[in-house]
Write a protein that binds this DNA or RNA. Structure first.
Lengths: 156, 156
DNA sequence: ACATTTAATAAGAATTATTCTTAAATAGGA
DNA sequence: TCCTATTTAAGAATAATTCTTATTAAATGT
């Protein structure tokens, strides 16, 4: 399976036809499970976990397994069809620097690099945020591949 | 133990003296374990996991347990002394919307609300980012308490 | 349409991260 | 210094995710 060249590639949720093409191009099969999982995640208004998708899909596909959901979500992520909302959900990571700063996260090695970004700090939030609730912190996250991992990639 | 009023409260990593005060005010004991964990996380240049801190601390405190590290990090988080880099590390959450958008995350119920923020999208990254590696995505995350959870809090 | 091949699935076991339980130890106020 | 409520260490328990393996089925060529 070929990894999507960059996450910037695609926009709006893909359609089922696009999914078919993408699978063909990646050389993977479009199974009924993949199709259903794709439809479920594309139409979801929340940001469901594998478990939640499992509960929802069991109604249509009573024999589907949680493992397939996980496997498929990982596949879709590699194909650039979906994103995981947060990258670091193997081990929790902690930070004692309480000053405003932001994070660059390497998607390969999970390294976190701090940086300052005053222009971000001074950018005013959209008006409609107030309706969400009380905000007490804001920060930017960049995703990318760090120098070391880029270097490693070259030499392969 | 009293929760810190808001994460905005403190700045720079706290000093050991501040820790002593904060513990007294919160009515919790300043144990040697807490002190060592605090020093380790404050002086760390990376963003260590509990496991990593455990490895580092075992040298000084051979009897410390991983459980204590977890417990203490949770305590420090509640006190507003440290932050976890990402909030959602119980269950991974997925998103099929590949258009640029940002997230408000409720720290109580873990609900995620999407929003658009064109002013952020058009804010130029600092120059020094280029040195980190290749960036292929950027997004903002707000942390706060959603309307529903605020309401629940009032009625308690 | 059919057979072939190779990838994908379901089921359950295994692994990993984190929290809970409990008995023993101890920080901090009286 | 003593007392007591907290905190700790150890190991058990739980929860999320991945791995193993036998079976099934999608895609390709005929």
């Amino acid at each position: 399976m070929k990894r999507a060249p960059t996450q910037k590639g695609r926009k709006k949720p893909a359609s089922v036809d696009e999914l078919r093409d993408i699978c063909r191009q990646a050389g993977i099969k479009l199974t009924p499970q993949r199709l259903e999982i794709f439809k479920a995640i594309s139409s979801a208004q929340d940001h469901p976990s594998a478990e939640i998708l499992y509960e929802r899909l069991k109604k249509r596909m009573p024999t589907i397994s949680l493992d397939t959901i996980y496997r498929t979500l990982n596949t879709f992520e590699k194909l650039g069809l979906i994103k995981r909302v947060q990258l670091l959900n193997d081990q929790a990571r902690f930070d004692a620097d309480m000053e405003s700063h932001h994070h660059f996260i390497c998607t390969r090695c999970k390294k976190i690099i701090d940086f300052k970004w005053p222009d971000f700090d001074s950018t005013k939030l959209p008006e409609n945020i107030k309706a969400f609730g009380k905000v007490y912190g804001q920060q930017a996250e960049l995703r990318g591949i760090c120098r070391q991992c880029l270097k490693k990639e070259e030499s392969e």
